[in-house]
Structures are given as C-alpha cells and as structure tokens.
Write a protein that binds this DNA or RNA. Structure first.
Length: 533
RNA sequence: GCCGCCAUCGUCUAGGGGACUAGGACGCCGCCCUCUCACGGCGGUAACACGGGUUCGAAUCCCGUUGGCGGUACCA
C-alpha cells in the first residue's frame, strides 16, 4: 500500500514537474493536479494528516524530480494514410506543450502494421508536419527498427509468465464470454504456441492517471488478456507503444481519446516490464487523452468531410499559422476571450489544464475567417510569395504567366488582400491581370446592354485621354463621368468592371484599371464593344 | 452486448455553489460605410439534454435516464 502510494506520488511528481504546475503546498506536502481534473474541486485533506489519495506527494521527492525530469512528449502517427486533421491537432498539442515547457518533442512512426504502412505515407506525414512547422527534437524513430528490443522484452515476459502463447481465436473468446458472462474478460491457457497474450490478473484494477479526465479505473476482471504479438512473433500496437514510450523516457503521453480504453493494457505491459527490471529506474508516463475531432455532421472525421487531411487544407489555400491557430482552438481555449492567437502566443499560453473534455467538430467556416485574418496581416510581398508558391505548386500554374510582368503579382496581391479568405480565392478574383479573362454571360447581360455599351463608349473616350494612368488619375477621370451624368456610380463602374475582368466582382475598380494599364484596359473595352450586345 | 469517455447558443468555447438577466468568437439577420466583393463599425438572433437528490441557494456537486462517441482485431 505504501509502495503503491509512493509510486503514484512519484509519477505525479514527475508529471507535475513537467508542467511546472503545483496547486498547493502545505507543510511538507505538495498538491499536484494530475490525479483529478485540475478544474474540479480540490479534495479536502486535513492539515498535517497523511495525504489522502494520490494527488499529494512529499515535497522533497517532487523537488528532486523536478530538477532532472524535463518533459518529454511524443507524437506517434501510423503511416497507414496521410496526416489527418485529428492527427495534426494531436501533433500540434504535443508540440505546443514541449515548446511551452522547454521539453523534448519526439516523433515516432508506428509502422508495425506491415500490411498497411507505406514509405509514401511516411514521407507525406513528414512533409505535412514540416509544412505546418511542427519540428521535432528526436526521431523519427521507426517502430520496426526497434524489433530487437521488442523481442527481448517479449521473451522476458514469456519466460517470467507475464505472457503466454495461445491459439485462441475470436470465436474462442466469444465462447468464453458466453459461458462466463459478457462482462468477463477472456482468460486463456498457455499452449506453448500461437499468438502471445498478456496475462491479466483477475483481481484488482488499473487506474489511468489522466491529466485531462482525472483517474479512470479499469477493473481487471472486465479486461481480456490482450494479444501483444502475432503467432509469427511480430509485435502489436499495445505492446510496442508501451515499450517504446518507456524506452524513450516519455513523461506524458498526449493522444486522442480513442486510445483511452487501450491504456490499461499498455499500463499492464509496463507494469510487467517494470517488475522484470526492464525499464530501468524510469517512472511510468502519465496520460492526457484529447477529445476527439468530428466532422461537421458530428460523425468521426473522414474523407467525406471535405478537407480532411493536412494536404487538402494546403490545397484549399490555408496558411499554416491559421491552421495552427484554428486547430489549437479545437479543444483548448486561452481562458479569456482571445481567439486570434499567433503561434508564439499559443506556445506562451498553452497548458493541458485548459484542454476541454468534449469532442469538437471541425467547421471550416471559422477556419476561413481566421485564414482571412492571417492573410490580411501579411505584408504584400509576403502574400505574393505565398501566392506564388500556391499557384505554382498547388494549382500547377505556368510560371511564365506570373513572371512575365515582374512586380505585377505583388501589386495584384496588395489590392486583393482584404477581399480573399484563402490563397485559392486569389486567382478567380485577380487572374484577369495575368491573362485574358473569360466573360461571365450573366454579368454581360446585366451590365453590357444598350445603356452599358453607351456608358463604355464614354468611358473609353475619357480614359484614352488620361496620361499618367495611375490610381489617382484614373479615379479622377471616372469620377468626373459620374459627376457630370445622372447615372449612379454603379452604372459607370460595373460595365467597365465586366469589360476588363469579365465578371461583376474584382478588386477596387480604380486600382484594377490602373494596374491593368492603359493599353490593356482600352483593348478590353474595345473587345467588349465589338462583341456587340 | 460488454467496458469506458462525454454532455452550455447551429459551431468552437467561458463558467468549477451566490458575481448569470449565462460572457466571447464563427455563422446567420439587420443597419452603417461603399464602385462590386470584401474589410471595418454598430445592433440583433440563439444554449445550461431530461429527471431526481444535496444545499438557504445548482449551469456548477451526487445519482439515474437519454443521447453522442470510443474501445472491444493475430489494426494503429
């Protein structure tokens, strides 16, 4: 009992040191927030009495550990597909935590599923992380590279009787439950051959110390003996993840809530390894299970939900910093009413205590809004650089189109900046600066009727007489037309807009005409006139 | 089925016994600005899942119900 308390306190102290969060100090005892939800009512403990529960640790022990137990976190994606938004959010939270605490961020690739893991997926995940600017300090550790160590531990577990070989099938497990009750965990026999199962004791329970959810208790009697290695000896997730986290010295495992139910199995593996002295002096990690991300319909996020992967977000024209900001807000809040937070501010303010327990829906409209904010924050030159990369790499545009006229992209970017929400919005709005636009028939019908054509003739005459053709002079010329006629401003500007860009929407008309230049503007007016409506 | 997690506006959230007539942001609606679209400004719409209990007092603590989600693979 005493030993149990001490080891729990040890864990608590280590994890606490990792965040540097100490709730209370009383005498020789220090209260740590990990064992119950940080925002829950503190457990009452009489002054001077021995600490109740496992939220208290001796101060001396904690201080010792704090000194040399820096936080180590990891992100461990499985390369069975591209990096999805949920994975990106998990990576971001780990990264923010590591940077906030000056800890270490380890990347591990969980490729033990040879059937579904591919090098292409690994490359894509690495690329997505790099694009999001989530840099790691160690790794990538390939899980398959660690098979020697896995085999070593597996053999020890087998030899010591913590695990056994069994040929039991899913049907056997079902039959067992039919006989012993649906809530009774499966227990097998050592057959000396077959898959390796971990032996779960019937009595007792494993408690997951979760810094977001508090303690979650899993009664052993309900737990199946988990299969930890295939019949061919290759190890499975719940085994490999536990050993790898232990060996990497991970102090806190931050991952999706879908792993919560698996955690007791991993803890049981860890406990067995520790009893065999296979983990050195290292304390076990504590856990933080993040709420899941759902699609707009409340279902699990999938390919059907539009931009579900980081690559698709990139193709849709979102900026990495906007994505980091938005993803951070999905399950975490700064506590005040701030929603626009730069990455530096995120690092500064991020703590696990403020992570929500509720699942969140991925809603692209808010991301669009945030992305617009970040686009407007960019200097025109920076925006032009972003646009150039996007148009060339994501949209496969011919570089000649952009480079034919040096400086044009930056100027077009400058006058489009407050009108676009994503990089993808730019070309439909401002592509007419770079080549002949397509004419929108509805726009022509509305604005290039008899009145429009007459107005266009008048505009053509006046603009032909403008010499310097900068924004100011163009504006003066066009406003003069409005002033001397009885037409509303729109009756002057819209026909001209449709003539030069083919549609009713464009950047400011004065800026657009000036940037397009006198020659092109007049030519497009003539073309519209010739077309005859 | 079993085991577990979760439950505040349509969405993301603030809230942790009295400060709640429940705050902010996105969206939506209206007005202002205005050459279009945007941007910006102002205003509005809209939520404590339900039922018990504890308490002088519950969005907040407890229990139950309902609902959602996850796990239950020789996947991760």
């Amino acid at each position: 009992m005493t030993a149990l308390c001490a080891s729990a306190a040890l864990n608590a102290a280590v994890s606490s040191s990792a965040y540097g969060v100490v709730r209370h100090m009383r005498g020789d005892w220090l209260k740590i927030w990990i064992a119950s939800h940080p925002r829950s009512t503190p457990r009452s403990t009489a002054l001077g009495s021995p600490p109740a529960g496992d939220t208290w640790a001796p101060i001396s022990m904690a201080l010792d550990l704090m000194a040399d137990a820096p936080m180590r976190v990891r992100f461990a994606p499985s390369p069975t597909g591209s990096l999805h938004i949920g994975g990106a959010r998990t990576a971001l939270y780990n990264w923010l935590l590591a940077r906030h605490e000056h800890g270490t961020f380890v990347l591990r690739i969980e490729d033990t599923d040879a059937e579904r893991s591919t090098p292409e997926n690994v490359a894509q995940i690495l690329d997505s992380l790099q694009w999001l600017a989530l840099d790691y300090d160690e790794g990538p550790i390939m899980q398959t590279d660690r098979s020697a160590r896995h085999q070593e531990v597996l053999a020890s577990l087998l030899a010591a009787g913590f695990a056994y070989r069994s040929s039991a099938t899913a049907e056997d497990v079902k039959a067992f439950k039919a006989e012993h009750g649906a809530d009774r965990g499966y227990r097998g026999e050592n057959e000396g051959a077959g898959a390796v199962r971990l032996r779960v004791p019937d009595d007792g329970a494993t408690v997951v110390h979760d810094v977001i959810r508090g303690d979650t208790r899993f009664e052993h009697v309900h737990l199946d003996d988990p299969v930890i290695a295939r019949a061919d000896g290759s190890v499975l997730y719940n085994f490999a993840v536990a050993i790898d986290d232990l060996d990497a010295g991970i102090t806190i495992v931050v991952r999706g809530e879908d792993h919560l139910s698996n955690t007791p199995k991993q803890l049981l593996v860890l406990a067995a390894a520790q009893q065999l002295g296979l983990g050195g002096e290292r304390p076990l990690p504590v856990y933080a299970h993040l709420p899941l991300l759902h699609g707009p319909d409340g279902k699990k996020l999938s390919k059907r939900h539009g931009a579900a992967s980081v690559g698709e977000l990139r193709d849709a024209g979102y900026l990495p910093e906007a994505i980091r900001n938005y993803l951070a807000l999905l399950g975490w809040g700064a506590g005040d009413d701030e929603t626009v937070l730069s990455t530096a501010e995120l690092v500064e303010r991020f703590t696990l205590q403020r992570v929500s327990r509720n699942p969140a829906r991925f809603d692209e409209t808010k991301l669009r809004w945030l992305n617009g904010i970040y686009i407007r924050k960019l200097a025109p030159g920076e925006l032009a650089a972003c646009l150039r990369g996007f148009l060339l790499d994501q949209q496969g545009l011919d570089p000649d189109l952009l480079d034919r006229n040096p400086g044009l992209l930056e100027q077009a970017a400058a006058i489009s900046q407050e009108k676009i929400h994503t990089l993808a919005d730019f070309w439909p709005l401002a592509g007419f600066f770079f080549g002949e636009p397509e004419l929108d028939r509805a726009a022509a019908k509305r604005w290039l009727g008899a009145d429009g054509v007459a107005m266009l003739r008048e505009i053509r005459v006046d603009l032909a007489g403008v010499d310097s053709f900068d924004t100011t002079s163009v504006q003066g010329s066009l406003e003069a037309i409005v002033a001397r006629g009885s037409a509303k401003p729109g009756a002057v500007y819209q026909p001209l807009r449709v003539a030069i860009c083919g549609r009713t929407v464009s950047p400011g008309i004065f800026e657009s005409v000036a940037l397009l230049g006198k020659e092109t503007t007049l030519r497009r007016i003539d073309a519209a006139l010739d077309r005859g409506f």
